[in-house]
Computed example of a mutant assay.
Amino acid sequence: MSTSPSVSQGAPSHLDVLESEAVHIFREVAGEFERPVILFSGGKDSILMLHLALKAFAPAPVPFPLLHVDTGHNFPEVLAYRDRVVDAHGLTLHVASVQDYLDRGVLKERPDGTRNPLQTLPLTEKIRHERFDAVFGGGRRDEEKARAKERVFSLRDEFSQWDPRRQRPELWQLYNGRHAPGEHVRVFPLSNWTELDVWQYIARERVALPSIYFAHRREVFSRDGMWLTAGEWGGPKDGETPQKRQVRYRTVGDMSCTGAVDSDAETLEQVIAEIAASRLTERGATRADDKMSEAAMEDRKREGYF
């Protein structure tokens, strides 16, 4: 990851403007909060957030630790990338494990095998235990309609719950981080980015990504119109025949609910061209957990999920 500022000729590009806004948000949080943390999974949005944080504080180190909620069903390629980045930059990584909660009987496996909805309790308890008062997330408004409602600084109550009625105005990039003891603020520096912006910026900055984001041969099976990877989470079932296909992932989450897309895009330029032609958001196309109901994401956000 490069930490040197980009150099532009003439008027700033839209990517320069987005970068400047995100860097401003990171610095604002550093000055206003005592114990911020960056959610980092090894997915592209969290990778981009960390790259921007490195830029915001260079040549000093990033003054925040990282936090990953590990479902136990993560893609191995992504976990390996996460650990390499943490080591390369000398960062502190906190891990909240869904498996620990299952082993203790606090949580129970779902019949469908997906653990994404089970992340909320480990996340919120880790926030309380470590007394994090600002939590950076990689959510973007273009991903899903519930995320489109949220401000850059999003207040959470003492139970980590989100109430849309408590949204605060954010005029002229003025952010209100005021919160009562026990409350915290979720911070979304990528709010105004689109999926295409993310990929164009990654290409411009030459940010390394896990190989899973590029087309590769993989054994998958079809379920509910998505190509899923086999695993201990419960797939494939009877009648679901694995097959080798050329696929890539647009977004990365729990293996049980994150689908691959057929693709020949092996380079950044090819991925950008593919996304520019797409009419489906990455979550709409490949995330089964968002299809549980019309209000699936908003319901989970109200409970404390990102």
Score class of each variant (00 low, 15 high):
Phe221Met: 01
Arg140Leu: 08
Glu274Cys: 02
Glu205Met: 12
Glu282Arg: 07
Gln200Tyr: 13
Asp238Asn: 15
Ala285His: 02
Ser222Gln: 15
Leu190Arg: 09
Ala288Asn: 04
Gly304Ser: 03
Leu79Val: 12
Gly10Thr: 09
Arg35Tyr: 04
His24Gln: 15
Glu195Val: 13
Trp172Glu: 14
Ser154Glu: 15
Asp264Val: 04
His68Asn: 12
Phe221Arg: 02
Pro236Phe: 06
Arg287Val: 07
Leu102Tyr: 04
Val86Lys: 07
Phe33Asp: 00
Pro117Gly: 08
Val271Trp: 01
His129Asn: 11
Thr281Met: 08
Arg217Cys: 00
Leu107Met: 13
Phe188Lys: 08
Gly284Thr: 02
Pro122Lys: 03
His184Leu: 05
Leu121Phe: 01
Trp193Asn: 06
Gln270Gly: 07
Asp197Val: 09
Lys126Thr: 11
Arg204Leu: 11
Gly90Gln: 06
Glu205Phe: 00
Gln270Thr: 05
Pro59Phe: 07
Gln99Trp: 07
Gly72Arg: 06
Trp199His: 07
Glu150Ser: 13
Asp142Thr: 11
Glu303Tyr: 01
Leu15Gly: 06
His94Ser: 11
Ser6Val: 15
Ala58Thr: 10
His51Asp: 14
Phe188Met: 14
Pro164Met: 03
Gln9Glu: 12
Val29Ile: 02
Val198Phe: 01
Val152Lys: 09
Asp290Glu: 15
His14Ile: 12
Arg115Cys: 05
Asp254Arg: 01
Gln161Pro: 01
Arg250Ser: 03
Phe57Trp: 10
Ala288Thr: 10
Ser256Ile: 00
Asp100Ile: 01
Glu205Ser: 10
Ser20His: 15
Val152Trp: 07
Gly43Gln: 11
Ala58Trp: 12
Arg283Ser: 06
Thr3Asp: 14
Val261Tyr: 01
Gly182Met: 11
Ser256Ala: 15
Val69Ala: 04
Ser160Gly: 14
Pro169Glu: 10
Asp254Gly: 02
Ser191Trp: 05
Thr241Ile: 11
Met49Glu: 14
Leu174Trp: 03
Val198Met: 13
